[in-house]
Computed example of a mutant assay.
Amino acid sequence: MPSLDLNLVRVFVTLFDARSVTLAAERLHVTQPSVSYALSRLRDLFDDRLFIRSREGMEPTFTAMQIYPSLRDSLAQIDNVLESNREFDPQHSRRRFRLALTDLGEMALLPRILAHIHPIAPDIELEVIALEIDKVGEWLATGKVNAVICSRPITTPGIERRVILNERYVCLLNRDHTSIGNHLSLEQFIAARHAVVAASSGHGLAEDVIHELGIQRKVSLVVPHFSILPRILQESDLLVILPQQIAAAFEREAPLKVLELPFEVPPFDVALYWQEYTTRSPAQRWFCENIIEAIASSG
Rank of each mutant, 00 (worst) to 15 (best):
P2G: 05
L4E: 03
D5W: 09
L6P: 03
N7G: 09
V11T: 12
L15A: 00
A18R: 08
R19W: 03
V21F: 08
A24D: 07
A24F: 04
A24G: 02
E26G: 07
E26Y: 01
R27Y: 10
L28C: 06
D44K: 15
L50H: 03
F51Y: 01
S54G: 12
S54Y: 12
S54K: 06
E56T: 12
G57D: 11
E59P: 01
E59H: 06
P60K: 05
F62G: 00
Q66W: 08
P69T: 07
S70D: 14
L71I: 10
L71F: 12
S74M: 14
S74V: 10
S74H: 11
S84L: 06
E87L: 10
F88R: 02
H92S: 14
R94L: 09
R96V: 11
F97V: 08
D103K: 15
M107W: 07
A108E: 09
R112S: 13
I113R: 00
I117A: 07
H118K: 12
P122S: 05
V128Q: 07
L131F: 04
L131N: 03
D134H: 14
G137Q: 02
G137N: 05
K144W: 11
N146S: 15
S151T: 05
P153I: 06
P153A: 07
I154G: 08
I154K: 06
I159R: 05
N166G: 13
N166V: 13
N166L: 14
R168C: 13
V170T: 05
R175E: 15
G181C: 11
L184E: 01
S185F: 06
S185R: 12
L186Q: 14
Q188Y: 04
A191W: 03
A191H: 12
A192H: 03
A199H: 07
S201L: 02
S201G: 14
H203Q: 10
E207A: 13
E212F: 02
I215K: 07
I215T: 07
I215S: 08
Q216M: 08
R217L: 06
S220F: 06
P224I: 01
F226E: 01
I228G: 04
L229T: 00
L233K: 00
Q234P: 01
S236N: 10
L238W: 00
Q245V: 13
R252T: 09
L259V: 05
E260F: 07
L261C: 09
P262E: 09
P262K: 07
P262G: 12
E264Y: 15
V265E: 10
P266M: 05
V270Y: 01
V270E: 02
V270C: 03
A271P: 02
A271T: 00
A271C: 11
Y273G: 07
Y273I: 02
Y273F: 15
W274H: 10
T278H: 04
T279F: 08
T279M: 10
S281C: 09
A283T: 03
Q284T: 08
N290Q: 13
N290S: 06
I292H: 07
I292Q: 14
A296S: 13
A296R: 12
G299W: 09
